[in-house]
Write a protein that binds this DNA or RNA. Structure first.
Lengths: 186, 186
DNA sequence: GTCTATAGATAGATAGAC
DNA sequence: GTCTATCTATCTATAGAC
């Protein structure tokens, strides 16, 4: 007797994989169902509407994203931290999911509030991160770092440049250096 | 005898408006046709495929975006420039179009190269802008400003916060201040 | 409670009429 | 060269079988 959660979980993972690989426009019930190995008409039993499915995916994706950010918290080196963040920013599968969420948030208030959760969680973690590196923390600094990383991710996805990692890493490191110089003016 | 360009132009404007207001997922041939006042099957005469239509829209949008950036070039005040940039960043109709292009670029190589044109054009203009403000210009600085603005725009679209303009403006101004302090260390 | 057949709507593209 | 009828594929959602 297979527990119910199994199938819900299978579908959820299939949905996330679909979003990762095919983006928002490729995110359809038939494709998710095919990947999960269930019939499309079956999928709608667990997730009655497309929105319901996106909501579930959003929750999962948000948890995953916050965990990814947590993974490199506490590091004191500016250079190492910058490189770690850059690594996340240039992961296109990741960016695709987040862009889909941003778009869904623009369309659906439900997703919008989930997206705000994510942004708040990220802000908290950036704050910790800046503190760990000994940099001055203000609301503006946090917002700046957050937006910078989001922008780098989106640009890297759209341009598909080969030197994306180096570019992202050095942009972040440059910002950290500026914050460092400000914190400790010589 | 109505010139041919008229109808092409009408369709193009309708397409852009559709993208602006309904986003990438709402960008369909039937909707564009309805807005332009032509039959969907007619639209495909001028733009045989969906991709052809998106390409045309992308060209127009890129020109418009670069013109928008040009509008506030040459300003010397950090504060005024930051506010002007923020004004563009929080214009959701604008961000919707650019996000659609970014997404299309991720899917279609043709759009990708158009998107690169845009990014290059923006980089040139940011360089001029930083010079006009008397700030130090490096590749990293330019990339940083560009990514920051893109990130602010995406975040503002997704979160729909009421104080978006103030937040965006102060984030940009903070970065400019950091660049200023670095240029002229006291 | 679990799953499916099927309806109803909308998408994109083509072949052909004027 | 300009425009349209129409086909096929694909999407979401519902009503109902097991």
């Amino acid at each position: 007797m297979r527990p119910v959660q199994d199938r819900r979980q299978t579908i959820l993972e299939a949905a996330l994989a679909t979003l990762r690989e095919e983006g928002y426009s490729g995110f359809t019930q038939p494709r998710v169902a095919a990947r999960a190995g269930v019939r499309q008409s079956h999928l709608t039993y667990y997730y009655p509407t497309r929105l319901a499915l996106i909501e579930a995916v959003a929750r999962t994706a948000i948890d995953g994203q916050l965990a990814a950010v947590d993974a490199f918290a506490g590091e004191a080196s500016l250079k190492v931290t910058a490189a770690s963040i850059a690594n996340v920013a240039i992961r296109h599968e990741n960016t695709r999911v987040l862009m889909a969420l941003a778009q869904a948030a623009d369309e659906e208030p439900t997703i919008r509030s989930l997206f705000r959760e994510l942004a708040d969680g990220v802000a908290v973690r950036i704050t910790r991160m800046l503190e760990a590196m000994g940099l001055a923390v203000t609301k503006e600094h946090v917002a700046m770092v957050h937006a910078l990383v989001v922008g780098l991710a989106v640009i890297d996805l759209a341009m598909g440049r080969s030197d994306g990692k180096r570019r992202a890493s050095s942009a972040i490191e440059t910002l950290f250096s500026l914050l460092h110089d400000e914190s400790k003016p010589s």
